[in-house]
Design a protein around this nucleic acid. Sequence first.
DNA 1: AGTGAAACGCTAATGGC
DNA 2: GCCATTAGCGTTTCACT
Lengths: 156, 156
Amino acid sequence: MTKTLDQTDRRILTILQQDARLSADALAERVGASRSSIQRRLKRLNETGVIAKEVAQIDPEQVDDQMTFVVEVELERERVDLLDEFKRSMMALDEVQQCYYVTGQADFVLIVLAKDMKDYDRLTRQVFVENPNIRRFATSVVVDRVKASLRVPITD
Amino acid sequence: MTKTLDQTDRRILTILQQDARLSADALAERVGASRSSIQRRLKRLNETGVIAKEVAQIDPEQVDDQMTFVVEVELERERVDLLDEFKRSMMALDEVQQCYYVTGQADFVLIVLAKDMKDYDRLTRQVFVENPNIRRFATSVVVDRVKASLRVPITD
DNA sequence: AGTGAAACGCTAATGGC
DNA sequence: GCCATTAGCGTTTCACT
């Protein structure tokens, strides 16, 4: 909880967000510390959950022709139990890459992946249209995935 | 370009999207192949760019108290050179975690991180308000980051 | 063509000092 | 920060199919 992340920690995190395959030696050189120091820090950063996980980023176009959609969802009533139920259903759907509960006219903003429009249509019918708790949803089709990361800016 | 990814490749990709730290031995066991086969596949998947990179996912709350914003941006005129200029400026901004060029009333949807409202306000003044090419932008504040990944669903 | 098994040297990570 | 041990990696070779 009490995260005293010093400058070295922050530099490590900045680097690992771009490339998690770097060895402790390479990191040591870049941030100006010894390898053992780096490894102790890495262990701590992993154990405390600052580094949540390391994942491979896949090029969507090379796997299947995947389309991306931005979806705004407005619920009928904002009851806590219904909100939670909606959140849980979004968590469970592989096609929903991201889900944000937001202020403003919409209640949720989603990033959704699907193979094609037909596939997307099938998904929305299943998840939104047949859900009486959803007042409306608006879809934007992503033409260009200009930038897509989960990178957190870290000032050191 | 489009390699035929077989079932084993797809399983590997699915697993690595959740945890890129697994050893070739561990992968071999999970997908039912030998270590050498896995390593040959990994090499190919990396060289062809199917696996674009491996990155560490940081818990934003443990680094700084970061707020997340969803921003819709509408440009004044959709001239190709102006679109490209806007895309480039988004690429360059660390605070812009994601940027999608979309169909619909908005031209772009952004996911933006900032320390607080003041910080966000400063950013928008700089990037949007003082840009004559931007007709309007609408901000939603993220209350709950329900789900945030870049995971591409891979059916095998 | 790709697979699985074995073996090579090397680099990197781990835990104790 | 250093050292010794262990683990994992990258590669090659070979027989198989």
